[in-house]
Lab assay of single mutants.
Amino acid sequence: GETKIIYHLDGQETPYLVKLPLPAERVTLADFKGVLQRPSYKFFFKSMDDDFGVVKEEISDDNAKLPCFNGRVVSWLVSA
């Protein structure tokens, strides 16, 4: 499998796309960081919350699996 991750960088209009050679349910924050090489950023991901619906959730645990929608991951990188 392959996972497409779209990421928005510090408010830039056009998002970036990276592809990881892993199925979406196995991709972790560490996998994503390894491709990006951007150490001083906070990582937020499109996520579903039972109370609020669609939210941007910050993930900082490198072992955390990334939230996935239709085989895609959507993220926002914010300068720390």
Score class of each variant (00 low, 15 high):
residue 1 G to W: 09
residue 1 G to Y: 11
residue 2 E to R: 05
residue 2 E to T: 11
residue 3 T to N: 01
residue 4 K to N: 15
residue 5 I to H: 06
residue 6 I to R: 02
residue 6 I to A: 05
residue 6 I to Q: 09
residue 7 Y to C: 04
residue 7 Y to M: 07
residue 7 Y to L: 02
residue 8 H to P: 09
residue 8 H to T: 06
residue 8 H to N: 04
residue 9 L to G: 04
residue 9 L to H: 00
residue 9 L to P: 03
residue 10 D to V: 02
residue 11 G to K: 08
residue 11 G to T: 07
residue 11 G to H: 07
residue 11 G to Y: 08
residue 12 Q to N: 15
residue 12 Q to A: 11
residue 13 E to C: 09
residue 13 E to R: 11
residue 15 P to C: 08
residue 15 P to K: 08
residue 15 P to R: 08
residue 16 Y to Q: 14
residue 16 Y to P: 01
residue 17 L to F: 15
residue 17 L to N: 06
residue 17 L to C: 15
residue 17 L to R: 08
residue 18 V to L: 12
residue 18 V to S: 01
residue 19 K to H: 12
residue 19 K to W: 08
residue 19 K to G: 04
residue 20 L to R: 02
residue 20 L to V: 14
residue 20 L to W: 07
residue 21 P to W: 03
residue 22 L to N: 00
residue 23 P to L: 03
residue 23 P to A: 08
residue 24 A to P: 14
residue 25 E to Q: 08
residue 26 R to C: 11
residue 26 R to N: 12
residue 28 T to D: 08
residue 28 T to V: 05
residue 29 L to E: 02
residue 29 L to W: 02
residue 30 A to K: 13
residue 30 A to Q: 07
residue 31 D to V: 07
residue 31 D to C: 08
residue 32 F to V: 01
residue 32 F to W: 05
residue 32 F to T: 05
residue 33 K to G: 03
residue 33 K to N: 11
residue 34 G to F: 06
residue 34 G to M: 13
residue 35 V to H: 09
residue 35 V to G: 01
residue 35 V to W: 03
residue 36 L to Q: 03
residue 37 Q to V: 11
residue 37 Q to D: 15
residue 38 R to N: 15
residue 39 P to W: 07
residue 40 S to G: 14
residue 41 Y to E: 06
residue 41 Y to V: 08
residue 44 F to C: 03
residue 44 F to E: 03
residue 45 F to I: 00
residue 45 F to G: 02
residue 45 F to S: 01
residue 45 F to Q: 03
residue 46 K to D: 12
residue 46 K to E: 15
residue 47 S to H: 10
residue 47 S to P: 03
residue 47 S to T: 15
residue 47 S to F: 13
residue 47 S to V: 15
residue 48 M to T: 15
residue 49 D to S: 15
residue 49 D to Y: 09
residue 50 D to R: 12
residue 50 D to M: 08
residue 50 D to S: 13
residue 51 D to T: 14
residue 52 F to P: 07
residue 52 F to S: 15
residue 54 V to W: 14
residue 55 V to W: 10
residue 55 V to Q: 14
residue 56 K to I: 13
residue 56 K to D: 02
residue 57 E to M: 15
residue 58 E to G: 02
residue 58 E to V: 05
residue 58 E to K: 04
residue 58 E to P: 00
residue 58 E to S: 04
residue 58 E to W: 03
residue 59 I to Q: 00
residue 61 D to H: 03
residue 61 D to M: 08
residue 62 D to P: 05
residue 62 D to G: 01
residue 62 D to Q: 05
residue 63 N to P: 08
residue 63 N to Q: 11
residue 63 N to E: 13
residue 64 A to R: 08
residue 64 A to L: 01
residue 64 A to M: 09
residue 64 A to N: 06
residue 65 K to I: 15
residue 65 K to V: 13
residue 65 K to Q: 14
residue 66 L to F: 07
residue 67 P to T: 02
residue 67 P to F: 04
residue 68 C to W: 02
residue 68 C to L: 13
residue 68 C to D: 04
residue 68 C to K: 00
residue 69 F to W: 10
residue 69 F to G: 05
residue 69 F to C: 10
residue 69 F to H: 12
residue 70 N to G: 10
residue 70 N to E: 12
residue 70 N to H: 10
residue 71 G to M: 00
residue 71 G to A: 02
residue 72 R to W: 14
residue 72 R to C: 15
residue 73 V to Q: 07
residue 73 V to D: 06
residue 74 V to R: 07
residue 74 V to Y: 15
residue 75 S to P: 05
residue 75 S to L: 07
residue 76 W to L: 01
residue 76 W to H: 00
residue 77 L to R: 01
residue 77 L to Q: 00
residue 77 L to T: 09
residue 78 V to W: 09
residue 78 V to T: 11
residue 78 V to Q: 06
residue 78 V to A: 01
residue 79 S to L: 03
residue 79 S to I: 04
residue 80 A to H: 11
residue 80 A to P: 14
residue 80 A to T: 14
